[in-house]
């Protein structure tokens, strides 16, 4: 349903998007993750027909976002990372305007506006001026605007940015509901944990390049070849860190808060042998834990924190 094909976007010398390709099947939720300035918004804007690629193309339901943006727009709902509201307009008028702009007429328009207000839980605020809405309410309104014409594909750029925990949970529930309706969703965030639960697939982008793609489990598995071990000793933690540094296969030994952390790329036998040698060398080990890699660790390991 969504396809980015060798997408490039340059701003002068800056490669905002550098050869990004991926596709999202119908009814799937794709999480687009990367630090600020990674190129998420740029590629989403191209897909939403608001910008042109320097090379490559983006497709929605087989239509080119470059050459047939009018056909793409009919199928697409885009929620950008800004509100885009008008002064002196209330919630109902705002949704009614966009419903008209999408060509909905008569009863179809009224039903759509009513349904959206119900879905976004804004029906109690129908006559409230938009200027008086909280950030969470505005975010729900913008989600409503993006889906007023019942698009098959929705692109949500940082939908949860700046929301308090309650508003964030409400928004997450709405996105889950959209996914359950069978819509194809592309959601961006700079926080992997925020999207991990609701996405079928995630893509991690940094400096315009797609670094990893797959389900969260697949990405985690890809990184699972690397292990992290925490060792607690009753004394001589500094000596242990030095001792580990001298051992072959041990990477990044360091002392943190009285514990010693180290990493390796070998199997569990290596960990067991090292524990035996450690005790043999006279270190009094009180805990020896192979540490599970968290989503944050996955994100940190895939990205390097570069910003263009």
């Amino acid at each position: 349903m969504i396809e980015l094909r060798s997408l490039h976007r340059y701003f002068g010398q800056t490669r905002a998007v550098d050869d990004v390709s991926f596709s999202v099947d119908k009814g799937k939720v794709f999480g687009y993750i990367g630090p600020n300035g990674a190129g998420k918004t740029t590629s989403m804007r191209i897909l939403a027909t608001l910008d042109l690629p320097s090379r490559g193309d983006a497709f929605v339901d087989g239509f080119s976002a470059v050459n047939d943006p009018d056909r793409v727009r009919r199928r697409l709902g885009f929620m950008p990372d800004y509100f885009g509201t008008y002064p002196d307009v209330n919630v109902r008028e705002y949704l009614d305007f966009f419903a008209r702009a999408y060509g909905l007429m008569g009863a179809a328009r009224r039903q759509s506006v009513g349904r959206i207000m119900g879905f976004t839980k804004l029906d109690g605020l129908a006559n409230k001026p938009i200027d008086g809405l909280s950030k969470g309410m505005k975010q729900r309104l913008c989600l409503g605007r993006a889906m007023v014409h019942d698009p098959a594909v929705m692109i949500l750029d940082e939908p949860a940015a700046g929301l308090d925990p309650r508003a964030r949970i409400q928004l997450r529930e709405m996105i889950r509901e959209l996914a359950s309706m069978g819509k194809t969703l592309l959601i961006s965030s700079h926080i992997l944990t925020e999207l991990a639960e609701m996405c079928d697939t995630v893509g991690i982008i940094e400096q315009g390049k797609l670094l990893a793609m797959g389900s969260v489990a697949e990405i985690r598995k890809g990184l699972a070849a690397r292990h992290q071990v925490r060792v607690s000793v009753l004394e001589k933690a500094d000596d242990l860190a030095q001792w580990l540094a001298s051992r072959e296969g041990v990477e990044l030994p360091r002392q943190e808060n009285g514990d010693v952390w180290w990493e390796h790329s070998r199997d569990q036998h290596f960990e067991a042998d090292l524990l035996r040698d450690m005790i043999g060398a006279g270190f009094r080990v009180s805990a020896y834990t192979a540490h599970a890699i968290s989503l944050e660790d996955v994100f940190m390991q895939v990205t390097e924190g570069h910003v263009q």
């Binding site: 909905l104 007429m105 009863a107 179809a108 328009r109 014409h149 098959a152 069978g182």
Partner: peptide
């Protein structure tokens, strides 16, 4: 709401006489 509603509905609206 229907995710298959690929083409929006101005044509349907025309019938709304």
């Amino acid at each position: 709401m229907n995710a298959d509603a690929a083409i929006s509905t101005p044509l349907d609206g025309e019938k709304d006489a």
